[in-house]
């Protein structure tokens, strides 16, 4: 039927000497999976459009003295901080809901390598989202400089940009972790937002828990990140809360992914 049909399969004595699939290739495949479905593509487009829209709105409504690069970029952080974890969740949970683990894990039986590829792919996507935010906010700053008297101030420092990169990478990583741990899209997304929110409310209401809030509530500890007021103590507090809310779920989720039986139906 094709050119492959005539030659025998077993002539090559070294057919088993195929090298292992390089991790870089697995990462590229996982990255591709983020946009090669309609749902995935629209989520990415959505993140891009919302990022651009929020900057445009800020440009239209802000006082001209506030039209700084730093503020434009700052406006994009909250929507991206909400949407990027969803992206992370879906890149993992869709493999369960669409049952594509059957294929993913038969082509690469070493599941930990797939877990690493998923994490790398989502980190790349999050970084790309922040770069897009940086570019759009630079464009807005340039426009503000042209159209407003006191506007368009190029005040963004490398450190400020770094803070935002850290915040968004953490957010997307938390999404991957919850996706691995909870495995179904809806439940993982609800848990991703409801659990931290419930915890934030609890530790703020109960005075006795205020120490816990300062060290273990990510919504409290990352404020300094968004306000660019990080110091040694703030990094320590952030580190502890990230360990609990991001790294711990990531470790538990990875263990679950490695052990879980993959069934077809």
């Amino acid at each position: 039927m094709t050119a492959t049909a005539s030659n025998p399969l077993t002539t090559d004595p070294d057919f088993r000497q195929v090298p292992r699939v390089p991790l870089s290739r697995l990462c590229r495949v996982e990255l591709r999976k983020s946009w090669d479905t309609r749902a995935g593509l629209w989520l990415l487009i959505g993140i891009g459009v919302i990022t651009a829209a929020i900057v445009v709105i800020f440009l239209l409504v802000a006082d001209s003295r506030d039209t700084t690069w730093d503020n434009f970029l700052g406006a994009t952080t909250l929507p991206q901080n909400i949407l990027l974890p969803v992206l992370g969740v879906l890149l993992v949970t869709s493999e369960w809901s669409q049952r594509t683990w059957l294929v993913t894990f038969t082509l690469e039986p070493n599941r930990s390598r797939i877990a690493v590829a998923k994490v790398v792919a989502t980190l790349v996507l999050a970084f790309a989202a922040v770069l897009l935010a940086l570019a759009v906010s630079a464009l807005a700053t340039a426009l503000a400089a042209v159209f407003f008297d006191a506007g368009g101030i190029w005040n963004l420092s490398g450190g400020d940009f770094g803070d935002i990169v850290v915040a968004q990478l953490m957010a997307v990583l938390q999404g991957v972790a919850f996706g691995m741990l909870i495995m179904t899209s809806a439940a993982a997304i609800v848990a991703l937002f409801a659990l931290p929110l419930a915890w934030t409310i609890l530790v703020n209401l109960v005075t006795a828990l205020n120490d816990l809030r300062d060290w273990l509530d990510l919504q409290t500890t990352n404020i300094a990140l968004f306000e660019h007021t990080m110091d040694a103590e703030a990094w320590a507090k952030l580190g502890v809360s990230v360990a609990v809310w991001v790294l711990l779920p990531l470790v538990l989720g990875t263990i679950r992914l490695l052990r879980r039986e993959v069934k077809s139906a």
Partner: peptide, 27 residues
């Protein structure tokens, strides 16, 4: 002659179809 999980790049040696419907519907 090897446990499947120890095959390097198993797709090059073993073709597997476990469930034809287990593909992302949006792809």
């Amino acid at each position: 002659d090897a446990p499947y999980s120890q095959l390097a790049n198993p797709g090059r040696n073993v073709g597997v179809l476990l469930d034809a419907s287990a593909q992302h519907a949006g792809r």
